[in-house]
Amino acid sequence: MSDIQFVFMMLVIFQAKQLIGDYLLQTGWMVRGKSKSGPGFIIPLSVHVSVHALMTLAIMLVFNPSLWYLAALDFAVHFSMDRIKASPRLFGRYTDVNKQSFWIPFGLDQMVHHLTHYFIIWSLVSLR
């Protein structure tokens, strides 16, 4: 398989991972919980990002097990971005879906997740 074919396959795999982790497997408990003030956000957010990290770990174990640690990177970046987006003291204070102030952080969140995936894909290709 050529590098370009591998990259395209990884883009599709990580896009599916994002859909599964952020939309199909994210429960209402996770969504509500990661928006809590104080330490109450930690467990629901950790469970949510653990789903992502475990899927990334599975991908790494199939394609390059020596890069297992990129699952921890995915966890850390996803945790940080989702907390920034959901925290009532940060972007989470923008809750009106009819306003641009809600959608800009939402788009930023998705962009950061995709850039994380691109870095992971770049690592997979570079270290093949």
Rank of each mutant, 00 (worst) to 15 (best):
D74I: 00
Q100T: 12
L45N: 01
V49I: 12
I121H: 01
L45A: 05
S87E: 02
L67Q: 11
L19T: 12
I84C: 01
I42G: 07
R128P: 05
F41D: 01
V125P: 08
Q110C: 06
L45W: 01
W103G: 10
A71R: 00
T95K: 15
F119D: 07
V125W: 11
Q15E: 11
P105S: 05
S66H: 08
Q110H: 11
T27D: 05
A76S: 14
I120C: 02
K85F: 03
F14K: 00
L45Y: 02
S35K: 15
W68I: 02
H117T: 05
D22Q: 09
K36Y: 11
G107F: 05
L19R: 15
G33F: 02
W103T: 09
F102C: 12
I13T: 14
Y23Q: 15
L127S: 14
T116R: 08
V12I: 15
A72F: 13
Q5D: 10
W122F: 14
Y69M: 12
A72C: 15
V112D: 04
I43N: 08
I20S: 03
D3T: 08
H52Q: 12
L45G: 01
L11R: 04
F106S: 13
Q110I: 06
Q15M: 10
G107V: 04
H114S: 05
H113N: 11
K36F: 11
S80K: 10
S101M: 14
D74V: 02
L127Q: 13
A58D: 04
H117L: 06
V31L: 13
K34Y: 03
A58G: 12
D3R: 12
P39V: 10
Q26F: 04
H48K: 08
V51F: 02
K85N: 13
I4F: 06
D109Y: 02
M30Q: 04
L115R: 09
M9H: 09
G21F: 00
R83E: 01
P44L: 09
W103A: 10
A86G: 08
